[in-house]
Design a protein around this nucleic acid. Structure first.
Length: 718
DNA sequence: CTTAAATACTTTTTT
DNA sequence: AGTATTTAAG
């Protein structure tokens, strides 16, 4: 193996073995290369069998890539090596071990929607008011508790006050219901292995031996259960290597604790620490800008990236009148880079803070025929029509799954309404068996003749597949099922574009199942459903597709692009939220901006709008993000797109800036920078009337908004 | 129980 | 503005 294409620090990181190792790897410092080489080194030089290596990555896609790269380095089959996300590795362990906790190995994994539906039901069961106990919020609180490893019992013993007491009850009931449904939510996936390791030390020992060397990528974004998993697995042999960058910690809202990396040495004992500070990705300009911003943060490990790359272009900043204007400027930028810059569509990415921002951009790109791909937002497998089919498959696999039962018992509509459903629930509850089982006892249900017949048929249908699913492939089961419930007719009879689209999504699902079957050795229904639950949009994304990518900054973690366009740089949007930021939240937003900028190899475009619509209402004025002013002035170009994007040859698509409020005969106009004797520097957001009588809405520093009559105000234009 | 119309809600970020 | 949920009419 050749470690010659590694720099000194990288080489050291690769060849250092024995005891805990912490690698601080800045953006673009080649950490994936270090990790893959290290794994190869472990196998080839240290002689560790590849199946004794556990490598944890942040996405399934990263896991696949890592495996590929190691295989290439070693030129041998590494399929027995454990590479995956914490969630997928845990799921794999649980398929073998969860019977120890009284679940069946056919458990299903509930996504956020499923889990919310269950929380909602528990709120109903406890006769709580959904107005005060909003399912979504209760779900978040339960998840937060789980991330802090607070059990329902512990929560119950510590809560004070009615609200918290009831939430703790919901939590407890929710956990019971999950078990009854033989289901796990995302948080359980991490917690259950820990439970097993604690209660059955012999199983822990087994996995400690199995995973003789443990590597973890993106360690700065691990939460408490993930940290405990790493610790449990490695505490005997202490052969553990974690890689991360505290400056890129952007998941604290999900329970990630940057202290896991900052206190690594303290926790794991005598360790080796290596810093990778040479960046191979970006231009000097980009790094200087990124550094200028992130160095404003207080609590960070000391390190500074440098590069031998060229100085590169300045960052470009666009001022836009609103989000519509912004999307046209994005379009022009893309066109310009394709035509003049000799770039391909897939060299560009548009990054934003919230998924909602993608729609406007998408509209323009679609209209103008620019190929694009949106990552995130409404995920394919989370679409209603897809989940309906998955619910059928899940209940075939796991008849205890009540959430799926509720979903499909009346889909497509077969005359089973709320009251009938309630009766089924009650019967199941009284006899302590599954909803599906209750259908066999419909003699005990006081329901109409028609309903009995329908339920009987539905029951027969599910049983038919329950007896045959093990022999048949997942794709053919699905095809048969669709025919049995005559779904095509259901959608086609609706005579709407929307219904047809839904039907085509269902067909795409069938294709993806067939695809899965062909490409996997393990191709049963169970494996497919597991894969689907843990798959994200980014895992489905094909880098080489010739299309511009649109995604959130969170999704862009770990990726790189020649050209990065960051939109929506406005106070309240990015940084997101009310201005009364606590330092910690603001610092995380700043790290997010750092992550966004450091995705770029060559060019960065930034944009902000002077007004933006929220929920499709009228545009409300906005102020430039503070992050813009934190960039070194001399490294940022322009304030107006016209000045450096030559709008030529594209007159067909030239836009007229969405006309804002009339500004004639006014001394002041929107966007002017002014100074007030009392309030200091400010910017005009709106002008009503004209001349000296004009009423000006001005935002002053500190986001203080004032309405001022022009002639009375002692304003100086700047 | 179903369908259509009114209404309420959405926008943090994701495994 | 677009989607999901609730309500009213049939």
């Amino acid at each position: 193996m050749k470690n010659t294409d590694l720099n000194l620090q990288q080489k050291k990181a690769v060849e250092l073995i024995g005891g805990p190792i912490l690698i601080f790897a800045g953006a673009g410092s080649g950490k994936t290369r270090v990790l893959t080489h290290k794994i190869a080194y472990l196998v080839e030089e240290v002689g560790l069998p590849s199946e004794n290596i556990l490598a944890v990555t942040f996405t399934n896609k990263a896991a696949d890539e890592m495996k590929q790269r190691v295989q290439k380095l070693l030129d041998m089959d590494c399929s027995s090596m454990s590479v995956g996300t914490f969630h997928s590795i845990s799921a794999r362990i649980l398929r073998r071990e969860i019977h120890l906790l009284g679940y069946s190995n056919d458990f299903v994994i509930y996504d956020q929607d499923d889990s919310r539906a269950l929380v909602k039901k528990m709120i109903g069961n406890l006769e709580l008011d959904e107005k005060s106990f909003v399912p979504k919020s209760v779900q978040t609180q339960i998840s937060n508790a789980k991330n802090k490893m607070i059990s329902p019992e512990f929560m119950a013993s510590t809560v004070e006050g009615f609200m918290d007491e009831k939430i703790s009850e919901v939590y407890s009931e929710y956990q019971k219901a999950l078990k009854q449904n033989n289901a796990l939510d995302f948080d359980d996936l991490l917690l259950k292995p820990l439970e097993i390791f604690k209660d059955f030390p012999i199983r822990l020992e087994y996995y400690q031996n199995q995973f003789r060397y443990v590597l973890v990528d993106e360690y700065q974004d691990t939460n408490r259960p993930q940290f405990e998993l790493v610790q449990a697995l490695s505490k005997e042999h202490r052969d553990v290597c974690v890689v991360g960058d505290d400056d890129q910690s952007i998941y604290s809202w999900r329970g990630a604790d940057v202290n896991n990396i900052l206190n690594f040495v303290e926790i794991f004992g005598e360790s080796q620490v290596i810093k990778l500070e040479q960046n191979y990705r970006s231009t000097k300009t980009i790094l200087e800008c990124a550094w200028a911003v992130v160095s404003k943060n207080s609590s960070r490990a000391e390190k500074k990236l440098w590069t031998e790359n060229k100085q590169g272009d300045k960052l470009a900043l666009f001022e836009c009148s609103d989000e519509r204007d912004e999307s046209w400027k994005v379009l022009n930028t893309i066109r310009n880079e394709i035509v003049q810059g000799d770039y391909d569509f897939n060299d560009l990415v548009v990054l934003y803070r919230t998924n909602a921002q993608s729609r406007v951009i998408e509209d323009v790109l679609r209209k103008e025929g620019i190929p694009y791909e949106i990552i995130g937002g409404i995920k394919f497998y989370a679409r209603k029509e897809v989940k309906d089919i998955l619910a059928y498959l899940r209940i075939i696999l796991n008849p205890s799954d009540g959430v799926s039962f509720d979903r499909i018992v009346n889909f497509p509509p077969r005359g089973i309404g709320k009251s009938t459903l309630k009766k089924i629930h009650n019967l199941a509850y009284e006899n302590d068996y599954t909803y599906l089982r209750a259908l066999g006892d419909f003699d005990y249900l006081s329901i109409g003749k028609k309903q009995k017949k329908t339920l009987h048929e539905f029951n027969q249908l599910i049983h038919k597949y329950r007896t045959s699913y093990k022999e048949e492939g997942a794709a053919s089961i699905t095809r048969d099922l669709l025919a049995d419930i005559d779904l095509q007719a259901y959608y086609e009879n609706q005579n709407s574009q929307e219904a047809l689209e839904r039907w085509s999504n269902v067909q795409e699902l069938v294709n993806s199942i067939a695809d899965f079957q062909e490409n996997r050795n393990e191709n049963s229904l169970r494996e497919f459903l597991e894969e689907v639950s843990l798959l994200t949009d980014i895992d489905r994304w094909n880098v080489s597709d010739k299309a511009v990518t649109l995604m959130t900054i969170h999704s862009a973690k770990g990726l790189e692009f020649p050209i990065v366009i960051i939109i929506g740089l406005e106070e309240g949007l990015f940084p997101l939220g009310p201005q009364s930021y606590e330092t910690e939240a603001l610092e995380e937003e700043r790290r997010l901006f750092y992550v966004a900028v450091t995705r770029a190899q060559e060019k960065v475009y930034l944009s902000y709008a002077n007004a933006r619509r929220r929920f499709g209402g009228i545009p409300s004025p906005t102020v430039q993000s503070r992050f813009i002013s934190e960039l070194p002035r001399e490294l940022v170009n322009g304030n107006n797109i016209e000045s450096y994007i030559k709008v030529k040859n594209i007159s067909r698509n030239s836009y007229t800036p969405s006309a804002s409020v009339s500004q004639q005969n006014t001394l002041f106009s929107i966007g002017d920078h002014v100074e007030h004797k009392l309030f200091g520097k400010g910017k005009i957001l709106a002008v009503e009337g004209s001349g000296g009588n004009a009423k000006l809405t001005i935002v002053f520093s500190g986001n203080i908004r004032k309405k001022i009559i022009a002639k009375y105000a002692k304003l100086t234009q700047r």
